[in-house]
Simulated scan of single mutants.
Amino acid sequence: MRETQAQTVQVSPLSDDLAFLDIVTEWDLSSAYHDWKVGIVVPDTFRPNPITPRVIAVANQKGGVGKTLTAFELAMALVARGLRVRLVDADPQMAALSAWLIACFPEGKRWTLTDVLFERCSLADATYPTPYVGLYTVVSGPDLGEVENSHEKPPGVESLLQYHLSTEDQFDVTIIDAGPTLGLPTVAALVAAHDVLVPVQAASGLDVKGAASLMQTINRVKGRLNPNLRIAATFLTDFDRSTLSRTIGGQMVKAFPDALVVPVRRSVRVGEAQLAMAPLRLFTPGTTTTLDYDLAAALLTGATVPTQRTAS
């Protein structure tokens, strides 16, 4: 990893008196709809994991569910808590993380995740600073999709990220933004990860099916390559208060009984932040979307959350 003087933007904690969601132990599906109150589900069996270094994969076998938004905003929330965070773009789509998060490249060769998977460089070599103090990134591009069918990929490439991550301790948390298909980069991300976060659009039944397909993949990875992998949270992105959102949330609670279920309230400012190539947390600090990711980051790491926002 090459250090530069590019990191100049500080990421500050949010105030505790903002409109965070309540924290509940289960999703209320029995009350009348007009009496229902949205909350983040923290089941009694959920256990935060403050241990560092930590590797988190953000995945769902369907595009357009908010994977990149989830990876980016959680990273910013963790940086605001004083953690040193690396974001890895493992999605070959042009509209992925590398198009949103600015990397500060030094002079010379610019390594990417493709180079790491072809063993042209180490993961540390491909890690670059961003303008935000404490946040680093590994960029990607369309050529990442070529790794799948290349005859030049090294043996055991599925475990290559795990190897690099197990031999370094420069970062408290590495978050991997996986692609929407079960390709080699996605499998490599799951093999390397301790936790998986599953974004699901709150208004799309098809996204629920994508999550079910991902569960099959995770079970195969656990059985063969990474027995300690767990689903730590599911995120209901573009959430608005509707019967469909409540139904989909209830299905996620049932499907992942030990995981957080986090409604991420919809905000039109998300698209504006992406167009401005800025994190939503800094573009509009008080938006509900930012608050939901911020509270989720605290819950995942066992950090202190506002006690007045806790309900039974």
Rank of each mutant, 00 (worst) to 15 (best):
P142M: 12
L14E: 07
E26I: 02
G64Q: 00
L74D: 03
K62S: 08
L69G: 11
D89W: 02
V24A: 15
N49L: 06
A96L: 06
Y136H: 13
E148Y: 04
T112C: 14
F20I: 08
A99K: 04
A126G: 08
S122W: 04
D91L: 07
C121K: 03
V42I: 05
A99N: 09
L144D: 05
V9A: 13
R110A: 12
Q7W: 12
S12K: 13
E107P: 06
P131A: 10
L97V: 07
N60Q: 05
P53C: 01
D89M: 11
V79H: 07
V138L: 06
A77F: 00
D125L: 10
T137D: 03
N60L: 07
V138W: 03
R54T: 02
A95P: 10
D44V: 05
G82P: 01
L135R: 06
P131G: 05
N60V: 08
P48Y: 03
P131K: 12
A96T: 13
N49A: 11
P106I: 11
L29Q: 15
A59P: 10
A96I: 00
Y136Q: 02
W111V: 01
D91R: 02
Y128S: 12
P92Y: 09
T8P: 05
V65P: 00
I51C: 01
G145R: 02
A75G: 12
T8S: 11
R81M: 05
S30F: 14
Y132I: 06
D89F: 03
V9F: 11
Y33I: 14
S150H: 02
P131L: 05
Q7D: 14
A124W: 08
D16I: 04
D35V: 11
V133T: 05
A71V: 05
L113K: 06
